[in-house]
């Protein structure tokens, strides 16, 4: 039996927005730690892993681990019925085939209840190895969103170079080329906008912009984003939240031989 009450319903709405483009169906794995989700996109190019820790809910109760198979499009449709300030409660029985959602407004005078049919989703949990990344860039999430959108005009892939000095995003396409460089800044005043780089080794990798733009759907969840890279290893894009995170992994593009 699961019962999870979320004070800020907007969080759940934003989370759904952040993943529903990438994956259509997924299991919400509920345990006493919290609610987690892990799924790959159709092409097995990207992976999403998100976690909402139990302390983000008040109260949170989950006696037995549960996997709730949900069609994300349907869930986001239901969530659209919730107000931004509503308190959302998720409930599911151990054997239930529905997920029930309750939305209460702040004045506590409007309560709406929805039930969403669950489905059996055949998915295996993938073990993601802990990696020591060569380069970790922490930057403003809004800035990352802007760079991705801007460069998408030029090409469908971006080259990211990280050096001691800064991080450079470059795209080259038929109509021309463009590049954005962010310098390592110690601007303590505007912490949200600063760019911080931890570097073991310079890296230079190519990624599909289509996917990156998709990842930036998570921008409303956090003001900061971190990009972790090593050559030959998937990029990790992480948005940290108060009680959890959403992580995207993206396999790099390889140069075509011919």
């Amino acid at each position: 039996m699961l019962e999870a009450r979320l004070q800020t319903g907007a969080l759940l709405k934003k989370l759904l927005e952040a993943i529903k483009e990438l994956i259509t169906d997924a299991n919400f794995d509920c345990s006493d730690n919290g609610i987690a989700l892990q799924a790959m996109d159709n092409s097995h190019v990207a992976l999403v892993a998100l976690l909402l820790r139990h302390d983000g809910f008040e109260p949170y109760r989950c006696d037995r681990s549960l996997a709730l198979g949900v069609n994300l499009v349907s869930l986001s449709k239901v969530l659209r019925c919730a107000g931004n300030d509503d308190i959302i409660t998720l409930k599911a029985d151990d054997t239930a085939d529905v997920l029930s959602l309750t939305f209460e407004n702040t004045d506590n005078d409007r309560i709406s209840e929805y039930e969403l049919k669950l489905m059996d989703i055949d998915s295996e949990h993938l073990g993601i190895p802990d990696t020591q990344y060569d380069a970790v860039v922490q930057m403003s999430s809004a800035e990352f969103l802007r760079i991705c959108r801007d460069l998408q005009v030029l090409s469908d892939s971006v080259q990211i170079d990280v050096t001691k000095e800064g991080v450079k995003f470059a795209a080259k396409g038929e109509l021309g080329s463009g590049a954005v460089t962010l310098k390592q800044s110690g601007n303590v005043d505007k912490e949200d906008d600063s760019t911080l780089i931890e570097l073991q080794q310079d890296v230079s990798l190519n990624f599909s912009l289509k996917y990156l733009v998709n990842f930036t759907k998570a921008t409303p969840l956090s003001t900061r984003v971190s990009l972790s890279m090593s050559s030959e290893v998937p990029l990790l894009v992480e948005y940290k939240m108060e009680a959890g995170y959403i992580r995207y992994y993206l396999a790099p593009k390889i140069g075509e031989d011919n």
Binding site: L47, P129, P234, A251, K253, I254
Partner: peptide
């Protein structure tokens, strides 16, 4: 420049090929 999308993989290069 022509690029190809690789599949998600956490292995070292040798495993990739």
């Amino acid at each position: 420049m022509s690029l190809r999308q690789s599949r998600l993989s956490f292995g070292p290069k040798s495993a990739l090929v």
